[in-house]
């Protein structure tokens, strides 16, 4: 474990807590892409099935359970409890265009052609593009509430910090995982324009307005 991964995991945890709290407190999921949340729930449930087979550490197990529980609870709030506030009209990204390539790529490029390994690989590929429906929705509505942009910043930072973690591990432990690294770079790249807007606007107290 290293500082980059710890801060990355905490940033990830912060992001999903911010989102769940925002929906719960405002009793509304306006501006939130339910499709992205479904993809994230799928990412964690497919990646963390190894909860039942391998024990890495208490930290690892607790965090996996939290990620699965919070992501499913967020989907429940969006699609059940506060369904009336779900913005169907702006959450229109076709997620089948993300799921199909992730499945195909996981079957073609993986470390091991076993059930759990294919699911893990699918989860890694899917996570790299899972935020697209949310970013698409923000671009369609032309703006995002500041709490949503804090969520996106924390979520984007987590994988950016993981890249530093992978550099650290390659340098210090001679460990690397090309699939996770390439997908993580793609995932972080997707946030770049958001990061720019967040730093130049939101941190100056302005609303996150995308050029319509």
């Amino acid at each position: 474990m290293n500082i980059f991964r710890i801060i990355g995991d905490l940033s990830h945890l912060l992001a999903i807590i911010i989102l769940l709290r925002k929906i719960w407190k405002t009793r509304s999921c306006a501006g939130i892409s339910g499709k992205s949340q479904i993809l994230f729930a799928l990412v964690y449930t497919t990646r963390y099935l190894d909860l039942v087979t391998t024990y890495v550490s208490l930290y690892n197990t607790v965090m996996k359970i939290i990620f699965i529980a919070v992501s499913i609870a967020t989907c429940y709030l969006i699609y059940m409890k506060f369904k009336a506030t779900y913005d169907h009209n702006h959450d229109t990204f076709r997620i089948e265009f993300l799921l199909a390539p992730a499945v195909i790529l996981a079957l073609l490029i993986n470390h091991d052609f076993t059930f759990l390994e294919i699911l893990w690989t699918f989860s890694i590929y899917l996570e790299s593009v899972a935020i697209l429906p949310q970013l698409f929705m923000v671009s369609k509505t032309g703006e995002a509430e500041s709490i949503t942009s804090h969520y996106l910043f924390a979520l984007g930072s987590y994988r950016a910090l993981y890249i530093l973690n992978w550099i650290y591990r390659y340098h210090n432990e001679e460990i690397y995982d090309l699939i996770a690294i390439v997908a993580g770079i793609v995932q972080t790249a997707l946030y770049c324009d958001f990061f720019y807007l967040y730093i130049t606007k939101v941190l100056r107290g302005k609303k996150l307005q995308l050029p319509a």
């Binding site: 991964r5 996996k64 490029i109 470390h111 001679e174 460990i175």
Partner: peptide
Amino acid sequence: IEKSSTHDEL
């Protein structure tokens, strides 16, 4: 693809 670690990351 080769890899040199088990999946010990989140």
